[in-house]
């Protein structure tokens, strides 16, 4: 299939591993899905310490379930990416460990306190779900199928994150104040989740023309603000003055791009932001620390013992 044919036929779930697809499509889809897979893994590592720091047994169980889900989403997505035949799962994991793998801006920032957890588990996951729901109609069928399962599970993550936010914002005055401060710290990063405006997006046009991407950065950011500004206010959070956000007559939003730190954003995009490098290093150390587990599994299988899954 040549590129023109791909563009003609581009529609929801239009292409599968049975199709002979041009290299440009395979590379663009690999870049997009690998980024998504890496983000699931790095998000899980960011949240993992809060299994230990959770304030109650219910929160601990829910947080460990969520982290387990995110790792599972990473695995599903590496499979969807691998099926394009450009990069193997091992190569993608190695690139993530050595600092070449790219992932979502929000997961480059350290998370230090419990009051920050709903910023990821509610707002970032809510933003991710806005985007993922549109990707159920992406043109790479294995990616769309992975999104079916991810979207099925993700509702729990968002609702649990929202439940934490609700608990904090109906708590003591100190809890409310600390939560508001965390919100102010994370809000600009969350706005940047959707990337630069459409004019400045490098990969959008091609990805849209071959049906990989269903909505533009601006459309998704609008859809997010439309849904989540009322949610934030509902729980008593004040939207920070910056970045300035104006509601247009047609109900869409205009974000004053100049109010956001794009130098930091693009440093992050290149894995050059120092705290993000620590996140990458932390995951690499964890990967190396459990190398013996992978080796044990391989040896066990080589000896002919069937592995068994945990509960």
């Amino acid at each position: 299939m040549d590129l023109e044919t791909v563009k003609d036929r581009a529609g929801p779930r239009a292409f599968s591993p049975a199709d002979d697809l041009p290299q440009e499509y395979r590379e663009a889809a690999t870049r997009m899905i690998e980024f998504h897979a890496n983000s699931e893994i790095m998000g899980a590592y960011l949240e993992r310490p809060f299994i230990r720091q959770a304030p109650s047994i219910d929160r601990k169980l829910a947080f460990s379930a969520k982290v387990q889900d995110e790792i599972g989403h990473g695995q599903l997505l590496y499979r969807a990416a691998e099926s394009l035949g450009v990069k193997s799962r091992e190569q993608m994991l190695a690139d993530l460990a050595n600092g070449d793998g790219k992932f979502l801006n929000c997961f480059h920032y350290p998370m230090e306190s419990w009051v920050e957890t709903p910023m990821i588990a509610f707002f970032v996951d809510g933003a991710a779900m806005r985007r993922q729901a549109t990707l159920r109609r992406t043109s790479w069928e294995p990616y769309a199928h992975a999104m079916d399962k991810v979207c099925f599970e993700e509702g729990f993550h968002v609702k649990h994150g929202e439940d934490i936010l609700q608990e904090l914002m109906t708590g003591s005055r100190k809890e409310r104040q600390l939560t508001q401060e965390a919100f102010e710290k994370w809000w600009p990063r969350i706005i940047q989740f959707f990337g630069p405006t459409d004019d400045d997006s490098t990969h959008h046009d091609f990805a849209a023309s071959v049906g990989l991407k269903q909505k533009s950065n601006d459309e998704l950011r609008n859809a997010f603000l439309d849904q989540y500004i009322p949610k934030a206010r509902n729980y008593g959070l004040e939207i920070p003055d910056e970045p300035r956000i104006r509601e247009r007559d047609d109900g869409t939003y205009e974000v004053e791009e100049g109010d956001l730190d794009w130098d930091e954003f693009f440093a992050i995009a290149k894995n050059e932001y120092e705290p993000g490098r620590d996140q990458i290093g932390g995951r690499r150390a964890a990967q190396e620390a459990v190398q013996w587990v992978r080796e044990t599994i391989d040896e066990t299988i080589a000896r002919g013992h069937a592995p068994r899954a945990a509960d």
Partner: peptide, 11 residues
């Protein structure tokens, strides 16, 4: 989880 306010359609 019992939260308040309208949820996003995908949620």
């Amino acid at each position: 989880y019992r939260t308040t306010g309208a949820d996003a359609s995908e949620v």
